[in-house]
Simulated assay, not measured.
Amino acid sequence: MATPLPTGLTTGTYVIDAAHSTASFTVRHAGISKVRGTIGITTGTITVGDDLDSTSVSAELDAASVNTGDENRDGHLKSADFWHAEEKPVWSFASKNISVDGDAYVITGDLTINGVTKTVDLPTEFAGTAKDPFGNDRAGFESELEISRRDFDLTWNATLETGGFLVGDKVKIALDVSAISQN
């Protein structure tokens, strides 16, 4: 039996509105604080079929657009120590399956960072739909997940004098997406 769409979401193609969507991350620094940043979403499409089984999501992000509020740190993140942004500028996600888990939706797909692809589960909340003042039909989605830097060959680190490492392995990623219907 096919899994029905969330109430209010209609079939068709939705384009992610990069100006009203955010991809952010948080990682431990020196074990005592957190560094937060954003990465620009460049493109994305949500193709809504008659049910979740025929629905798909794809998106691309620009690794060179990282912004942590510190120009030097951003430059280091773009370097070969971390993201190789010149050689591997595009991060991407392509769904393989969408399922329901209680009140949440789980979008399973391939996440590519730093040229490494891993299958991840994006627990996603459908925030609803709205018509904006310009007549556009919009749909909103929010998602959070945690990944390991090592899984994506992001292994640069420095040992602290007091023990431990400068950069934590676990990275929390949060997505807040607004998509515009193209129908």
Rank of each mutant, 00 (worst) to 15 (best):
G49S: 06
F152L: 08
L122W: 05
W83Y: 11
A85K: 00
V120R: 00
D132L: 10
R73F: 10
I180F: 13
K118V: 06
V177P: 00
V116K: 05
I113K: 01
H29D: 04
S79I: 05
T112F: 10
E125T: 14
L52G: 03
T7V: 14
G44F: 00
I107Y: 01
T43N: 11
T55D: 06
S56K: 12
P4S: 07
E161K: 13
D74P: 01
A64G: 11
T155A: 11
T108I: 12
A139S: 06
T3E: 09
N97V: 14
F126L: 07
P133A: 03
I180K: 15
H76L: 08
E161A: 11
I113N: 04
R138S: 05
S56G: 09
T11G: 15
D50L: 12
H29S: 06
T55G: 06
T43I: 04
G135F: 09
D132K: 03
V106G: 06
Q182V: 10
A80V: 08
K78I: 07
T11R: 13
L160N: 05
G12C: 01
D101L: 06
T13P: 12
T112I: 07
G109R: 02
F134V: 08
F25H: 01
N183K: 14
D81P: 01
S148G: 14
V48Y: 11
R36P: 13
L9D: 06
T43H: 14
T47Y: 11
R73M: 06
V177I: 08
G164R: 05
G109D: 02
D176V: 07
D153M: 11
A139L: 04
F134A: 08
D70S: 14
G168L: 05
A94T: 15
G75H: 14
N114A: 09
G37F: 02
Y14W: 11
S143T: 03
P89T: 06
E87C: 05
G12H: 01
D70P: 15
D70Y: 15
D74S: 04
V66H: 00
T22V: 14
